[in-house]
Amino acid sequence: MTNTQQVPAVSRLFETARLGNLELSSRLVMAPLTRNRAGADGVPGELMATHYAQRASAGLIIAEATTPNAVGRTYPHTPGIHESTQISGWRRVTDAVRAASGSRMFLQLQHGGRVGHPDTSGHIQLAPSVVRFPEALHTPSGLQSAVAPREMTVRDIRSTIADFATAARNAVEAGFDGVEVHSANGHLLHQFLAKNTNRRTDGWGGPVEGRIRFTTEVVQAVAEAIGPDRVGVRISPGLGVNSIEEGDTEDIYRALLPALARIGPACLHLIHADPDSAPFAEIRKAWPGTLMANPVLSREEVAADGGKRKGERLLAEGADLIALGRGFLANPDLVERLRTGAPLNDIRPEFLMHVHGAEGYNDYPSLDRP
C-alpha cells in the first residue's frame, strides 16, 4: 500500500537566511524594544544580559534603541553607547547571547531629537527646527511637558553625524555584528524627513532632497565607519508616531530609497508592513536589497500566533526577513513555540516600559522553564 499522506511544508520563517555577510539561523528577527531596564547612567546590566540571552534563538536580535550621545536620550533608563562603561555593559550582553546560542545581534542607534527632556538627558534637546513636542514625557521626576528644542546649527548636524559613526564603531567593539540606524517613529532622523518638524530653509530642509539629506549622511557615515554590510536602516512611512506628520510621504520615500540604495546597507527595515497594501508592494519593488518587514498586527493576531501567519504572507509577497516585537516580549522561546504550534504567553502590559525590575521582563516562562 502506498502511503499518500503528505508531510506539511516547513514554514519559510524557519529557513536559514543571509544578511550582508552573516548567515542567520532563521528569517525570524527580534525587533528592537525599549524596556527601560538600563542603569540611570545608560549602562546595560545583568537584567538586560539575561533578557537577551533568554531570546537568543531568534535568527537576529536587534537590541533596543540606544543613544549615540547624551543629548539624544529620550527616556530614563534607556541605554547609551557613547561611554566606555556603556560599551562594557553591552559587551556583557553580547557575550551572554553568544554563550546561549550564538545568535547574531545588531544594535539600534536612535537619537530622540525633540522627543526628550533636559531632566533626562541633562541638555536642551536638539531638533531640525524649534517645534515643541506636544505630548507629555516620562522623566526621572515623573511626567512633564516637553520644552522647546534648540534648532541644530550646521556644526550640531556635523557633530551628530560623527557621533553616529563613533557609536557604530563602539557597537562593534561591544560585540555587535552591526547596527540599525533608526530613521522612524518620529525621532531625530524622521524629524528631518517630516514637514511638520523640519522648517529649515538651508540645505537640510525645504524640498524633499534637503529633508532626506540628514538621514542619508548619517547612514553614509555609519557605513564608512563599519562597512555597509553591517548596517540596517529602519523607516516608518506615513506612521504618525510621536506626533510626526510627514506631509508628502510618497515623495519622501521615492527620493530616500534610491539614495540609501546607492550607499548599499545590508537591510531596510519597514515598520507596520501590510502584505495587502500598495505601499508595501511599492517599497519592495523600489528596494533592491534585503527587506525586513515588521508586520502590522492586531492584539488578536499577536495573541493567536505572535504574527506567524502575517509574517508568512509577507515572505510570500517578497519580504526577506520578518521582525516581531510583542511576540518576543512574553515568549523567550518564541521561535520554538511558533515552530511547534505551542501556546503563547500573555503579555503583561503594566511591565512593558518605565519600570525597572525583572518582573514582566525576565520571568516569562519558556517551554522548558515553567
Rank of each mutant, 00 (worst) to 15 (best):
A281K: 14
I124C: 08
H111I: 03
G122P: 05
N331C: 11
H182E: 12
G113S: 05
A146K: 00
R92F: 06
V71W: 01
Y75W: 07
D202P: 03
R35Y: 11
N3C: 09
E245A: 03
Q110I: 12
F280G: 10
P343L: 04
L143H: 02
T215M: 05
R55D: 14
V71Y: 00
G42H: 03
G178I: 08
T216Y: 02
Y52L: 02
P128T: 08
P44E: 14
A56N: 14
Y75P: 00
G113I: 00
F192Y: 11
I161N: 03
E224T: 07
Q54D: 14
R104F: 01
I87R: 13
T74G: 15
G240K: 11
L109E: 06
R200V: 00
D368P: 07
G186M: 01
A56S: 15
Y75E: 01
R98A: 09
V97S: 02
D156Y: 10
P349K: 04
H190L: 06
I161L: 13
A65D: 04
S57T: 15
Q6C: 04
G175E: 08
Q220T: 10
Q86S: 15
V43L: 07
R299L: 11
A171G: 11
G122I: 03
L137I: 00
G186Y: 00
I161W: 14
E336Q: 15
F176C: 06
V302L: 08
A40H: 08
P134L: 04
A53Y: 12
I235C: 06
A342E: 07
R91V: 02
S26W: 01
A278P: 11
P44L: 13
E83I: 06
H138N: 03
A225S: 15
F164G: 10
V7L: 12
A56P: 13
R104L: 01
A70I: 10
P237K: 09
I271W: 10
C267A: 07
S129D: 04
T67L: 12
L260S: 02
L324N: 14
N196Q: 13
A167Q: 14
I252W: 00
A63Q: 07
G357P: 01
P332I: 06
V147L: 06
V147P: 02
E224A: 13
M353W: 09
A58F: 01
L47W: 05
L188M: 10
G232P: 05
D346R: 06
G59F: 05
A56R: 14
H182N: 13
R313Y: 03
A255K: 09
S57V: 07
S277F: 12
G240E: 13
T160N: 15
T340Y: 03
A171H: 09
G112V: 00
P237M: 08
E312K: 03
H269A: 10
L297W: 11
P288H: 08
R12T: 03
A223R: 10
T201M: 10
V222L: 10
R35V: 08
D276P: 05
C267P: 00
L324H: 09
T201F: 04
A266T: 03
T78D: 09
L367G: 07
R337Q: 11
